[in-house]
Amino acid sequence: MASIVVVDDEADVGDAIRRVLEHSGFEVRAVNDAEAGLRAIEERPPDIVVTDVIMPRMNGLELVKILRTRFPRVRVIAISGGGSLGIQTYKPDAISTHAYLAAVREVGAQEILTKPFDMDELLAAVRRQLPN
């Protein structure tokens, strides 16, 4: 049974992802911010972390960076909201989005999903990152 940690500041989104994954038979822990996600991962490292990128306080990129150094085996699926980081948070910007995607790839996310995604897309991404 694969273990998955879902991090999303939007509780509705996190819950929906948890419900889908649980329904498909994964063991899922869902949290609402990056610090909580990090604590959950430290407590018991999962196989996969599904995380939103744009979140208050610690954002998804930082979380992914930490995971890359401390939990290199954990697979990361990043969920993009189509926004950008920094001063002008939530300012949609084509290049920023591209830069953001590039950044997420650079820090080591294996999969990137753009909201809103289908259940099938989510499950396909998860299955691709599982060992077998």
Partner: peptide
């Protein structure tokens, strides 16, 4: 997008 995600899922 955030709202649509739970609706779809």
């Amino acid at each position: 997008n955030n709202i649509m995600t739970p609706i779809l899922l």
